[in-house]
Amino acid sequence: MDFLNYLVRSDRILVGCMAVNVLAVTIGLRLYLEDWRDESLNKPVQPKTQYITQETEDDLGLGTLDTLLGHYNYAIRETASKIVCDRAVNDKDVIDRLLWGITRPDYDERIKNLRALAIVTDSQTLEKLHTWKTYSALVRSLELSLDPEQEVLNNGSWDDLPLRDMTEKLCLMFISQLVRSYGVEKLVKAKFVEKWLAKQNWGATAEERRRNFSEYCHRQSNRISDLVECVRETDCGRQALEDVGLWPIEIEEEEEGADEKTTLHVQRFDFVLPAELNDLSPGEWNTRSGEALLRNLQQSGFLPPGASSRDLRSRNREAMVLNDGSHPVNSSDIIQRGQADPGSSQ
């Protein structure tokens, strides 16, 4: 009792208790005011990321998808288009109906189904088309697209593929993608060589057809030549080409054609840059190519008759250009030597 009276009457203890109370009230009030301030602020609501699940896609009806396809927002239209294409490519009945449509004799129906097939498929869903029915339908569509008035394919410098009909180009696009991914065996078994490739206008006689076909495959670089190269790499493909008479059976004939191609390729040049020939020695010249090149240059007047390869290599030292840079180079700045003075600058 005496101790309590002492605490009550002690000024130091009273002051200490009051200080603790003030400090506690101050801290508590500060915390309350901070909470009140945070609640008073209007924070922007963060948008929640929403994903379209498979269940949501399956619940969308055809009427809803038709409305979304006409929406003004591009992202919504794109998403709706993707949903429609995914449904179509995963529906076997839809694919079968499109494949049936590309084999119809009516051109408008055939091109409509080909374009629809190109829209619903992509590189991820190409596996859906790797079936026997697809290859047969594509070959049949190519057969219906044959041009009875097609010109003879004997011009090696002209690529006819860009001017072919759109139905042919679409079918060749599908076939090229399938062959690149899955091989050419099913395409050969679908009679691609017999029903379409052999019916191209390669010529009238067997020799002409074989020659034009060989030159087309060597000189052209398009989807048709790429497909032929893939067909040739397989035993069944080579056999099919031989059966229709488009490829020589003997290896010697093929090698002779390759040598002829090299000579013709050299003869097509009107001239060769002298700087490229100056570093070559006579021993480095290929015999057949050098003779063909010299003969071509002599016929074009670039070299006189009887000129040798050394005369050809000396042509780069028979002229010089004098120009100080004050005006563009023209013919008056070029000083050429006469042909009668071949060694004055040696």
Rank of each mutant, 00 (worst) to 15 (best):
N5P: 05
R9C: 08
S10P: 02
A24L: 12
I27L: 14
Y32T: 11
E39C: 09
V45H: 08
E55C: 06
G61W: 05
T67L: 14
T67I: 11
R77P: 04
T79Y: 06
D91S: 14
D93T: 15
V94T: 10
L99E: 01
T103E: 05
R104Q: 14
E109W: 06
T121H: 04
Y135H: 05
D147T: 03
Q150R: 11
D160H: 11
L161F: 12
S181H: 13
E185W: 02
E185H: 00
E185Q: 01
V188N: 00
K191N: 10
W196F: 06
T205H: 09
A206S: 15
E207R: 09
E215H: 09
Q220T: 02
I224E: 00
D226I: 05
G237C: 00
R238N: 02
I251S: 15
E254L: 14
E254H: 11
L264C: 09
F271D: 11
L273N: 12
G283Q: 14
S289H: 12
G290I: 04
G301Y: 03
G306F: 03
G306M: 07
A307W: 05
A307Q: 05
E318P: 01
P328G: 08
S332T: 15
I335N: 07
Q336K: 13
R337L: 13
G338Y: 07
D341S: 13
G343F: 12
S344D: 11
S345Y: 13
